[in-house]
Design a protein around this nucleic acid. Structure first.
Lengths: 210, 210
DNA sequence: CAGTATTTGTCAAGGATTTCACAAGGGGAC
DNA sequence: GTCCCCTTGTGAAATCCTTGACAAATACTG
């Protein structure tokens, strides 16, 4: 039962597999071969087989993969039913949009609190939650023990707030601020989402193709 | 003047370099060595040198790189001053937040129109633009010739809309719908931003580290 | 002005990831 | 039940990306 380390590229493909298998389920397709899945996803069949094999072979020779079963397994690997408690800091445009737009529970998390440093926003609604002022953060964390935080704040205060949150028990950050958090503790997980970078990449590709 | 193809990993690092160089400029640092930049960014010095060399050596031996100059060059490579005209489809939570939150002009683009299929949203304000109904889309594209589109729509209509937009002259998509666009034309550029996938990756990392 | 300390550009080695190729095993037809 | 076809799992080859090492060139020091 040696816990082999899974490489980053494989991990980043897992959610995509999960999504495509969900689509197949919607189409009531019960079985799929690596070849067929590869065509749908624009990958190579052997990559798919290699990826799935990181977690142990759950296909059948001469048959392929059971869609439902495979999706369940990948869901378990990803931890989609974990309901990790999560807070969101920064109830501006983006913060509110994320809270409203994204189904956290279907992705392994549960949004349990929203905070903003602007006192005027405290008390307003964001999605189904009430925005709380920052001074209640410490007490809230003591009581509800959130594990992860979404950061939708300007870059200036980001690093300081991040350090504070680590002290309060947060061990994972989903970071939307235009800033790369710098954390020396390797147990703290950071997922940076730099929308500006993504847009620039698009601009680059347009600029360099005709 | 052979136009060497730049590998994807390098292209994806460019915006990050651009961002860090901007921070250095704010701190009034005029020169930087690959070693020092590497420490700040958490990369290796030789990777930085290798990356910059894809575009021709613009450092000085024994000195390092001129921050301002380097940033200007990378900006030109990325095309940050291109002002590519862009439209946004889907003025829901996320669409509005993007329009308001992101400075398109600083990233090589110019947002010139917002559309939504819900007639009730037509006429409302989103950022500094007025949301337009979908039936004006064709005319608008003929007149203003947008080059790229941001898609903030549910996945159901995404593929169909995408095909239609290609007909109207759109050649790049910044796709936020929970769906992978499937386009056979290699000249069309797609940048998928799957926020759900990103959140699941975070959940996976939390689940598999203690 | 000579000597030393830096630092780049670059080539080669090392690692990581993807693709290829094929043996082994199961499914379906008759 | 037997044969044939299909598809997986897997080890090895190939490709791609990152790191290491060093000569050549520049800046700085006294």
């Amino acid at each position: 039962m040696g816990k082999q380390v899974i490489s980053t590229p494989v991990v980043r493909r897992l959610p995509r597999y999960y999504r495509f298998l969900g689509e197949l389920e919607c189409e009531h397709i019960e079985r799929i071969s690596s070849k067929e899945l590869a065509q749908r996803m624009g990958l190579s069949a052997s990559q798919i087989r290699q990826d799935f094999n990181c977690f142990g072979g759950f296909g059948q020779q001469g048959y392929g993969y059971h869609v439902g079963e495979l999706r369940t397994i990948i869901g378990e690997i990803l931890g989609v039913d974990a309901h990790t408690p999560m807070i969101l800091i920064g109830a501006g445009n983006l913060g509110r949009a994320l809270a409203a737009h994204l189904d956290f529970e279907k992705h392994g998390c549960e949004l349990i609190g929203i905070f903003d440093s602007n006192p005027e926003l405290a008390g307003t609604q964001a999605a189904w939650l009430t925005v709380q002022p920052m001074h209640t953060l410490v007490g809230f964390c003591r009581t509800h023990q959130p594990q992860a935080a979404v950061l939708c704040i300007p870059k200036d205060g980001a690093q300081k707030l991040c350090d504070q949150l680590i002290h309060l028990g947060i061990r994972a950050f989903w970071n939307f601020s235009h800033y790369d958090l710098r954390i020396n503790n390797p147990d703290i997980i950071v997922e940076n989402v730099h929308l500006g970078d993504s847009l620039m990449t698009l601009a680059y590709c347009m600029h360099h193709s005709e």
